[in-house]
Simulated assay, not measured.
Amino acid sequence: MVLNLKLNDTSTAINTDPKTGTNASSRDTFIWDKEVPQLAQRLRGANHTWVMQTRREGKTVRRKIGDVANISVAAARAQARVIVEQLVQKAAPPDPNTTLKDFAERFLADCQHQWKPATLKAHARCMRVHIVPVLGTMRVAALRRQDVLKWRRGLIGSAGTGNRVLAVLSGLMRHAELLGLRRPGENPCAGLRRHQSDFKAEYLDADGYKRLNDVLCAQANAFPQAVACIRFILFTGCRKGEAKAARWDQHDGPRISLPDAKAGPKSLWMGKPVRNLLASLPRTGSAIFAGDNPKGLEVELSQLWKIVRRDLKRPKLRIHDLRHSFASVAVR
C-alpha cells in the first residue's frame, strides 16, 4: 500500500488502508516525500524507518537509511540524495582500501547541506584534531570496535568533547554503510555508552530571580540592550543565540517566528510582559536587541554577565542556565 503524503518535521503516519479504513499494521505502508521523491517513511507494525527506493536498470533498488525516531527529515533527505546521486552516476564500486582520512573529506562534503555552518565547522574540527591523527591511516572497512575503544581511551578533553567526537565518528561509519564501504549494521561505535559529564547546570530559585532582577535594574542605563536581551531570555526561555538573532520583521503579534533556530524553524510565543518589553524598545536596526551592531551587543552581554555573576556570587552561572531555570519553573 502506498500513501502519497508530504513529509514534514511534525508529520504523523496513520497506518490505515485508505480504501477500507481497516488497520494495516500487518502490511508495509510507505509515506513518500514530495521534495525527494525516492525517500519514504516505511511503516511495518511498530517499526518506522527511512528508506530510499528507486528503479535502476529495470530493477527496484531499496536502501534502508535508519530509524525515523533517530534521523530528522532533513538528514534523511540529504542521505537519500547521496544514494540517488551514486546510482544515477553509475559510480564505480567503492574502493575497499579507502582510508578514514580520505573518506572523512567525502563524508563532510556529502553531508554538509544537512548541517548548519557552525555544526559543519565543529565536525571538521573533530575530524582534524581528534579522529584523523589517530585513525586516519586505517581502512574504513577494517575499523573494528576494539580500535574505537582504544582510540576513545586516548582522547584528550572533557567528557562532552569525547561524546561529540564519538558521535561524529559514528556518523561517518553510518555514511560508509550507505555507500557500501561497510556492511549494514556493523557500525563499531554503535551501543558505546557516553561518558558521564561532571557538568551541572545551575538554577535560579525565587530569591535568585529577585537578586538578578535587582542587578538588571541597576545596570539598565549602562547596558540597555543587554539588559533587554536578558529579560527576553528570562521571559521566553529561548537560547541566547535565538534572542540575538531575533528581528523586528519576524515579530508577528504574540510570537516571533525564527526561520533558522538550532533545531529548525521555531516560534517564540510571548506573554504580555514580553510584548510590553518589546514595545518599550527603540528600533535602532533590523535586529531587535542588536540593532545593526551585533558585536556591540555581545560585548554588552559579556560585561553585564560578569557583573551578574559577581553580585549574585555565582561565578559559574551561565546565560544558558536561564533557559534551564525557565523550564524548571514551567513544570512546577
Rank of each mutant, 00 (worst) to 15 (best):
Q114R: 08
K101I: 03
L277E: 08
V73S: 00
C238Q: 03
R62K: 08
K6G: 00
R193A: 12
A78N: 12
A142S: 15
A176R: 05
Q250D: 04
D311T: 08
N221D: 14
Y203M: 08
I233K: 00
G157S: 10
S280V: 05
A124M: 00
L87V: 09
N163S: 04
V88P: 00
S286L: 02
E85M: 06
R275V: 10
L120V: 07
L5P: 00
G191P: 13
G208K: 08
G208W: 15
N221W: 08
V227Y: 02
L135H: 06
R77Y: 11
H320L: 11
C111Y: 08
V168C: 02
W151H: 01
Y209Q: 01
S11P: 03
K313S: 12
K150W: 10
G171A: 11
Q38N: 05
H175E: 15
R77F: 14
T16Y: 14
T29K: 05
G66F: 09
A122T: 11
A122N: 08
S158M: 11
A104N: 02
D260Q: 12
T12W: 10
S170P: 05
A92F: 10
L7Y: 13
A46Y: 02
H113D: 13
F232A: 00
D311A: 02
K316D: 15
I319A: 04
G136L: 11
A78Y: 01
A159E: 15
F232T: 00
R255P: 07
I65Y: 03
V61M: 03
K210Y: 13
L43I: 14
C189F: 14
S280T: 11
R174S: 15
R153H: 14
V299M: 05
K19N: 11
R183N: 11
I319D: 03
D260A: 09
H324N: 10
T10W: 05
G271T: 09
D17S: 07
R77A: 06
A159H: 13
L149H: 06
R332D: 07
A109E: 14
Q225L: 03
T119G: 06
G271Q: 13
W248I: 02
V129K: 04
L258F: 10
R194S: 10
